[in-house]
């Protein structure tokens, strides 16, 4: 492997390891057996046919938000509003699925795209402001997350609430917009396949097309991009639109594939999971497929852990936070190698 990539790979693996380790320490301090807890986590996410399907279902939106984050970070944009875009995407997909009448396949496609469009539109404002005026995208993205969540709450509670439902949710969408299962005895819907294909397509765009090339150049060195006559502002805008579309798809895949309605606060934080997934994958879309599986395992497993021994499922937020902190310090790698070298130096 080439020098730089090995370093990056090592950083990611180390970061995940540290995250799990600190999670274990917290479990231990608070009186749980970490091995039992992690065993339960693995068993309830990968232990049987049913739980594997559940994990793959959780993986679908994380792939989408992970790709959205990877694309953003590749262009060195720190927009972290994927959670909000996921909600807006869900809203749009719901409206398309509930309010329009169309024949099956077309309806699904339109509703899916509507979700992507929702996410795209939600990113349009900050994208334009960043491209045109250089307005810092990070702060705005957090503000927009809250606005999106409250707006969705409003729609769920006041606009389309289903009074007959046992949980707080909207009406169901029209059956023509519901994404079918891949096969009748497999409760996994087609959006999973779509997510995997999207990851491959995103990788292709980033590494094999001019648009992707320009995004990477801008991300690493915007000044050199300008000298090379790349329109940096346009690249920023493209990134926002592309990433927003992907994050919106996360929302529509959940509504059309899993819930068929919008339940109150339905996302356990898949937008944030995507950010972690992207960083573990070093913003490489192909690797997002692996890292989002890891996060999906944590997500699904954490519920099993909660039911089994009563640990809050938010423990995985702790693990994720630590993974991010650890992954943000590539300097640690060179520090360790230097340390090892100096040891070797002492011996000889």
């Amino acid at each position: 492997m080439i020098k730089g990539s090995l370093e990056q790979f090592f950083t990611s693996v180390l970061a995940v390891f540290i995250g799990l380790l600190i999670g274990a320490i917290i479990l231990w301090i608070t009186g749980y057996n970490p091995l039992t807890a992690y065993g339960l986590l693995a068993k309830s996410s990968l232990g049987d046919h049913h739980s594997i399907i559940e994990t793959l279902n959780a993986m679908t939106p994380i792939i989408f938000t992970g790709l959205a984050a990877a694309v953003m970070f590749k262009s060195a944009l720190f927009f972290i509003g994927m959670e909000g875009q996921l909600y807006v995407g869900a809203l749009f997909a719901f409206i398309a699925g509930y309010m329009i009448q169309l024949p099956p396949i077309i309806h699904m496609a339109i509703a899916l795209l509507a979700g992507g469009l929702g996410g795209l539109l939600w990113g349009l404002g900050p994208g334009y402001l960043k491209a045109k005026f250089g307005v810092n995208e990070t702060v705005i993205s957090i503000m927009l997350n809250w606005v999106a969540i409250y707006l969705t709450d409003y729609v769920v509670l006041y606009v389309f609430p289903d009074p007959k439902a046992t949980i707080t949710r909207t009406y169901k969408i029209s059956p023509t917009a519901v994404l079918p299962r891949i096969s009748s005895n497999l409760p996994l819907n087609w959006s999973f396949i779509l997510a995997v294909l999207t990851a491959i397509l995103t990788g292709f765009i980033l590494y094999k097309t001019t648009t992707g090339y320009e995004m990477r150049v801008v991300g690493f060195n915007p000044r050199a991009a300008r000298v090379a006559k790349i329109n940096v502002e346009r690249v920023y805008l493209k990134t926002f639109l592309f990433s927003g579309f992907l994050a919106g798809l996360a929302g529509s895949s959940m509504i059309l594939g899993v819930f068929n309605s919008i339940p109150y606060r339905f996302s356990p934080g898949y937008g944030w999971d995507g950010i972690t997934a992207a960083l573990i994958a070093q913003n490489n879309p192909y690797f997002v497929l692996i890292s989002s599986l890891l996060l999906a395992v944590l997500r699904t497993g954490s519920f099993g852990m909660m039911v089994g021994i009563g640990v809050s499922s938010d423990l995985i937020l702790v693990i994720q936070g630590v993974v991010l902190v650890a992954a943000s310090t590539p300097g640690a790698y060179s520090l360790i190698t230097r340390y090892l070298k100096s040891w070797r130096g002492v011996k000889t």
Partner: peptide, 10 residues
């Protein structure tokens, strides 16, 4: 971002 997520989780 990591510290924020960590904070919510912890």
């Amino acid at each position: 971002i990591g510290v924020t997520i960590l904070g919510y989780g912890l």
